[in-house]
């Protein structure tokens, strides 16, 4: 570490090369782990499937049944795999958004769930469900609108005359969260009694209603969002010095801010529209990424994206198997794992 810092002064290009190599290595390791998790956890579920035949069918990408019965094939490719892929998209999206907010706002506690941005997206999705229930496309669009509105509200509230302090930001997040929570309660009470139970489940984060139409959207947005924020990672690194210093170093602060807000809102919006509010992912995963790989956003953002996908896949496997054939909401599991892990990280840091 010492020697590389010394040589950095001499050659900035070499430092970039080192960072690039570190990024590539950590991303490749995480990507391999992610693919392994997708394949291996596809073998676990409330219905037992023959492992060898399932692996063979997965390897053929669904072109060969490998002796699975039609039902087993449908369970694997129509129910289990889409759900796992959605878990990956949701986890990746939330962790990327969390990493983006944390870098931009220079606040390690900035997280979509804690800042009320997930609640903004949830209000948008509920409006879509109540007024345009039939058309699935309105859900991510209104969820994005809600997330962006909540983001801007928190940002405006946090920037007082004295500037945005980390405490002020979290307080603004608390205000927006509680306000939007009461909006949600209000809508739930007004709504059909028959739908209340499913809504409470959904609000805690639930991946069982994987929609065929929204899955490709969620995956595309997750990948595009992670790439977009990674491409802005250098500017985000400079922003960590403070907005004024970053501006002096040539960062277009306003543009980066808009990019992060819009991209993160898209990420949160698409994941909330597909699965409800899954908490703690955007907090715990970027923390783990920074702790193990350092605070360079060029490494920590893509690593958080892959790690978040991994985290939610594992959490959802627990949620769908632990009391099978009944199910738990995945948000309960991420919070159960996330909150203690976060306390541990805080104490260690």
């Amino acid at each position: 570490m010492m020697s590389s810092t010394a040589s950095d002064v001499v050659s900035p290009t070499r430092r970039n090369r080192v960072t690039l190599r570190k990024t590539v290595i950590s991303c490749v390791v995480l990507a391999v782990a992610l693919v392994l998790a997708i394949v291996l956890l596809s073998l676990i579920g409330s219905e037992p499937l023959p492992a060898r035949a399932s692996l063979c069918a997965l390897a053929s990408l669904g072109t060969n049944t490998c002796g699975l019965t039609q039902d087993q094939f449908d369970i694997l490719f129509q129910i289990r795999l889409p759900r796992i892929l959605l878990a990956a998209a949701v986890g990746g999206s939330l962790a990327t958004a969390g990493a983006g907010y944390q870098a931009l706002l220079r606040n390690p506690l900035a997280e979509p769930y804690l800042l009320g941005i997930s609640n903004g997206a949830a209000v948008g999705t509920m409006i879509a469900l109540v007024f345009f229930g039939a058309s699935e496309w309105t859900r991510p669009v209104l969820a994005f609108t809600g997330a962006l509105t909540a983001t801007l509200a928190v940002y405006r509230l946090a920037r007082g005359r004295t500037g945005a302090t980390p405490e002020r930001l979290i307080l603004a997040g608390v205000i927006v969260t509680t306000f939007l929570s009461s909006v949600i309660v209000f809508v739930t009470v007004l709504m059909d009694a028959t739908r209340i139970r499913s809504f409470t489940f959904w609000l805690l984060g639930d991946l069982s209603g994987t929609s065929k139409a929204l899955l490709p959207v969620a995956i595309t947005i997750a990948i595009a969002g992670a790439l977009a924020l990674t491409l802005n990672a250098r500017s985000l690194n400079l922003l960590m010095l403070g907005e004024r210093d970053a501006f002096d170093l040539g960062v277009e602060v306003g543009r980066v801010r808009i990019v992060v807000f819009v991209v993160a809102s898209l990420l949160v919006g698409s994941s909330v529209a597909a699965s409800g509010s899954v908490g703690y992912v955007g907090l715990v995963v970027p923390h783990l990424a920074r702790l193990s790989l350092g605070s360079d956003n060029r490494i920590s953002i893509p690593a958080a994206a892959l790690g978040g996908a991994l985290f939610v896949i594992v959490a959802d496997t627990v949620a769908r198997t632990i009391i099978a054939p009944r199910e738990l909401p995945v948000g309960a599991i991420t919070a159960l794992i996330g909150a203690p892990l976060f306390i541990y990280l805080l104490r260690r840091a």
């Binding site: 409330s46 219905e47 369970i75 129509q78 129910i79 099978a324 054939p325 009944r326 199910e327």
Partner: peptide, 21 residues
């Protein structure tokens, strides 16, 4: 097919519903 699942109104696994035929 869900007569033995504990509780009155359980949330049920999609794949178990399919497998129950």
């Amino acid at each position: 097919v869900t007569a033995d699942v504990p509780g009155a109104w359980p949330k049920y696994s999609n794949e178990s519903a399919l497998a129950a035929k």
